[in-house]
Design a protein around this nucleic acid. Structure first.
Length: 440
RNA sequence: GUGGCUAUGGUGAAGCGGCAUCACGGCAGGAUGUGGCCCUGCAAUCAGCGGUUCGACUCCGCUUAGCCACCCCA
C-alpha cells in the first residue's frame, strides 16, 4: 500500500515509446525489414521467455548475462523448469531451428527478427531492462563469404539508417573448436604467471574465461594483454585463412574495418569471426550499436546436426539515440485529409456515417464529437492540421449536403454528399501539389 | 551490484524557512453557424514517506525513479 505512486510509474529500466517517438521505430523497422527481405531472409518470432537452461548452455554459465542479468519468472508449480525472459535472440532461434527441423530446408537458412530482450542490469543511458534488438542469423554455411554477407547486410542496414559515416566496424577471430581451446590454454598459462597483477575481476575471469581478460579496461590488465600472446598468432591454419578471406571480402566491398585483436564478445558461443559496430566519436564500450559473429558449434551443442552459423544483432534504442544525435531526417508521413464538424444531434449522427464512407474511400479523418461550438471545432481542425473541414449543420443534415471548407485557402462551397468524393480528391490533390511546390 | 549528481503543472524552466512564478501546450469562453493572431478564465497535495520547526517546496533522513561513472552489454 506504500506505493500507490510506484504503481503509477513504469518499472525501472523500462520506458514508454510515446507517439512522438514512433516515427523512429517505424523508420527503423521499415528499413530493416526491407533490407532483410531483399537479402531473401525470412522473418521469425520466437517466445519472449524460454527455459532457463537454453541460455545457460549457450551464452555460458560464467558470462555476466547468465550469472547476474537473467530475469527469472516465478514458478507456479512444483518441479517446473525455470523460465526466464530472453536476454538475447540467437538461442531461441537456434532452438526453433532444431525443434522444427529447419535443417531440412534448402541451405542457407536465413532468418531475421525484431523484438524485446530483457536483462536485469542497472539502467543507464542506452541501457534498459527491456530493450529491443533487431538481428538475423544464417545457418548452414561455413564459407567465409557467408561472414562477409552477414557483415554486408549489417552494414547495409546501418547505411539505410544513414549512420555509416559515423560508425566503425571492428573485427577479430576467436578461432574454431580446436584452436580456441589452445588459445584459451595459452592465455591461461600466460596470465597465470602474472595473476597477482590482474584486477580482481580478471583474476576470476582467468579461471572462467581467459578471453574476457583481453577487453578489460583496467590499465594494468591492458599492459599485460599487450605484451602477451595474440589470438591471431595462435589461430590454426584454417582459421587464419578464414579470417584472411573475410578481410579480403570486405576490401572487395570497400567496407573499412579495424582489426581489433582484443575484440571478444560477451557471449561464449562465438567461434571464428566476431565483429562489432561502434560510434567513431565515442571511445567508450557503451557506444556499441550492435555486433555479431560466427557460432559454428551451437546447433550441435544443443543436440542438432552440426551446422555452422553466423548472426548479427543491434540495439534499437541505441540506433534511435544515434539518429537523434546525428539529426538524421526521418520522413514524416502523417497528414490529415478532412476534419468533420457537426452542429446538432442529427448532424452528429451524419458525421459518423460520413466517417465510415470517407475512410472506406481511403481518406483520413478526425473529429471532436464532444465539442459543440463551431468555433472550437474549427480550432481543432486547425490544430490537427486538416486540409479540409467538412461542416454539417442543421440545414445540411436535412438535405444531405456538407459545407466543404478548404483550410488552406479559406474558400468554401456547399456540396451534395454523393458528389463529395470527387471534389475532395481534386482539392486534396491540389493542396498536395501546392505544398510540394512550397518545399522545392 | 558499487559510487556521485538530480527530482517544481503535460513539457521546459525560475523561486524562497511563512502568499508557488514564467513560457509553450491543454481545457472553457470572447453574443447565439466559421479556424490560424489577440484577450479572459481554469488546472501543481512543489516525486513519495517520515523528521527538525510556531511554520518546509525550500533543512535532514529513508524510499522510488532518472542521469553520470564503474561493471557489463545492445
Amino acid at each position: 500500500m506504500a506505493d500507490n505512486n510506484q504503481l503509477l510509474q513504469a518499472p525501472r529500466g523500462t520506458y514508454d515509446a510515446l507517439p512522438e517517438e514512433q516515427k523512429y521505430w517505424r523508420f527503423i523497422k521499415k528499413k530493416f525489414n526491407k533490407r532483410c527481405e531483399n537479402f531473401n531472409f525470412s522473418r521469425i518470432d520466437t517466445p519472449f521467455f524460454e527455459y532457463a537452461n537454453l541460455f545457460t548452455r549457450s551464452i555460458g554459465e560464467t558470462s555476466d548475462i547468465v550469472s547476474k542479468e537473467m530475469f527469472y519468472l516465478a514458478k507456479r508449480g512444483e518441479g517446473e523448469p525455470d523460465l526466464v525472459l530472453r536476454p538475447e535472440g540467437t538461442a531461441g532461434i537456434v532452438r526453433a531451428y532444431i525443434e522444427h527441423g529447419m535443417q531440412n530446408l534448402p541451405k542457407p537458412v536465413k532468418l531475421y527478427y525484431f523484438g524485446p530482450m530483457f536483462r536485469y542490469s542497472r539502467p543507464q543511458s542506452g541501457r534498459f531492462r527491456q530493450f529491443f534488438q533487431l538481428g538475423f542469423e544464417i545457418f548452414g554455411e561455413d564459407d567465409p563469404c557467408s561472414d562477409v554477407l552477414a557483415i554486408l547486410l549489417s552494414f547495409s542496414i546501418l547505411k539505410d539508417l544513414k549512420l555509416t559515416s559515423n560508425i566503425i566496424l571492428e573485427i577479430n577471430s576467436l578461432g574454431c573448436k580446436i584452436c580456441q581451446k589452445d588459445i584459451r590454454k595459452t592465455l591461461t598459462s600466460y596470465f597465470n604467471q602474472y595473476k597477482e597483477y590482474l584486477c580482481p575481476e580478471c583474476f576470476s575471469r582467468l579461471a572462467e574465461n581467459p578471453l574476457r581478460i583481453l577487453d578489460c579496461k583496467q590499465q594494468r590488465c591492458q599492459s599485460l594483454v599487450k605484451s602477451g600472446p595474440q589470438i591471431v598468432d595462435h589461430l590454426c591454419q584454417d582459421c587464419k585463412e578464414h579470417l584472411q578471406k573475410v578481410l579480403e571480402g570486405l576490401d572487395e566491398l570497400g567496407i573499412t574495418y579495424d582489426l581489433n585483436p582484443s575484440l571478444v564478445r560477451g557471449l561464449d558461443y562465438y567461434t571464428r569471426t566476431v565483429f562489432e559496430f561502434r560510434d567513431k566519436a565515442d571511445e567508450t564500450r557503451q557506444s556499441s550499436l550492435g555486433g555479431g559473429g560466427r557460432y559454428d558449434n551451437l546447433v550441435e551443442q544443443y543436440g542438432g546436426p552440426a551446422t555452422p552459423a553466423v548472426g548479427f544483432a543491434a540495439g534499437v534504442e541505441r540506433i534511435i539515440s544515434k539518429l537523434k544525435e546525428y539529426q538524421v531526417k526521418i520522413p514524416q508521413v502523417k497528414k490529415l485529409d478532412v476534419f468533420l464538424i457537426q452542429i446538432g444531434d442529427k448532424a452528429k449522427k451524419k458525421v459518423i456515417t460520413l466517417a465510415r464512407d470517407l475512410t472506406d474511400q481511403g481518406f483520413s479523418f478526425n473529429c471532436c464529437l464532444g465539442k459543440d461550438s463551431l468555433k472550437s471545432q474549427l480550432r481543432s481542425a486547425d490544430k490537427f492540421g486538416a486540409t479540409i473541414a467538412l461542416i454539417i449543420g442543421q440545414r445540411e443534415a436535412l438535405d444531405d449536403s456538407v459545407i466543404l471548407r478548404n483550410m488552406l485557402t479559406s474558400s468554401q462551397q456547399t456540396v451534395k454528399i454523393n458528389k463529395l468524393e470527387n471534389i475532395l480528391k481534386k482539392q486534396l490533390l491540389k493542396a498536395k501539389q501546392a505544398s510540394e511546390q512550397k518545399n522545392n
